[in-house]
Simulated assay, not measured.
Amino acid sequence: MHVGAKQATQNRAIIIDDFVEMAHFLRDLCAASGFQSTLYERATDLDAETFAAADVLFLDLSLPDVDGVQLMRRLGSNRCRTPIILISGHAGCILSAAASAGREDGLNILGTLHKPFSIAEFEALIKTVAGHTDVEEAGPLVTPEAFQAALEQNRIEPYFQSKIDLRRLEVAGFEALARLRLDDGQVLLPDQFIPTAAEFGLGDVLTDRMLILSLDAWRDWSARGADWTLSVNIPVSRLADVQFPDRLEELADLWSIDRRKLILEITETEL
């Protein structure tokens, strides 16, 4: 019993989100991972000591009293080293930009969760904290050999994020987001395996794999009568490949995709 009480004291999470249902959902997920959570709807209710005492901070970017980016600047000026997980329902590029800004301010940004997120995505991040691993000190989570094995065993998967036409209030298309599934079922986010792919010359292989898997899904949608766009992330380096346009043309022909429906998005971390 004493050990359990100590564990609860060591693993403390702060959740700042004015959306009560989401805050309670995060609290339940944290509890299942061995974290005791304190919920706040307003960031002004906390002081520097409270932030420093936590083992992880979940921060929603849209708060009623202060902008999430402004709060991160304040935490950076106070040299806060608590691991931070940013959460938001805004576009993924906004989350990525906020995470980059936080790291530039010296914060320990562990990762991001885009609402709605899956339990697997939450667990992939919280396990890093539960293992008492600091992001800056941790080595790459995926070795080149493990990444190659994931490719060979078809454990690179596209997760599709919907894009909504706000004028018509209907789904207009989907963006393919790369995920890597480990042997034990754990799902890794791009930040945990794409740097390995890029460093060891496997980035083009990953891009081609995501294109093929995404086009497979698009063909299934079209066969069912859906008229959606498909967005796929492409690294800047791939655009410098003079053979890449021909490769795209070949894939578009093989999958009979309307070129106007295929959208290439430049990987945000390379801009």
Rank of each mutant, 00 (worst) to 15 (best):
D105A: 12
N11T: 02
L188I: 07
F117T: 04
I234E: 03
L46F: 01
T82P: 12
L206A: 01
F25T: 10
E104S: 11
I234V: 15
H24I: 13
A146G: 09
P195L: 03
L182D: 00
L59R: 02
A252T: 14
G106H: 07
I84W: 06
M72P: 00
A240D: 12
D134Q: 15
S62Q: 10
L189G: 07
D241A: 03
N233K: 09
E137F: 07
A217W: 04
A223G: 07
A43H: 00
D191E: 07
N108P: 01
R259P: 14
R259N: 10
R81K: 13
A52V: 06
P116D: 05
W221M: 06
A217S: 08
L189W: 01
S33I: 04
D67S: 15
E49H: 04
G102N: 00
I257H: 01
D45H: 08
V135M: 14
E41S: 15
V129S: 05
L110H: 01
I263Y: 09
S77W: 08
K115C: 14
A149L: 10
I85W: 01
H132N: 13
G76Y: 04
V171A: 01
I14D: 00
R79A: 12
L177W: 03
I266K: 06
I164C: 01
P195Q: 00
T196W: 13
E136W: 14
V242E: 01
V205P: 00
A130E: 08
A146V: 12
Q148V: 06
F19A: 05
K6N: 10
A99V: 10
L113A: 05
I85L: 08
K127E: 11
T38C: 10
I15T: 01
T112K: 03
D220L: 11
R42N: 11
A149W: 09
I263G: 04
F58L: 15
F174N: 00
H2M: 04
N11F: 15
Q148K: 12
F160M: 03
R224D: 06
D67L: 14
E152T: 09
H90K: 09
L110D: 00
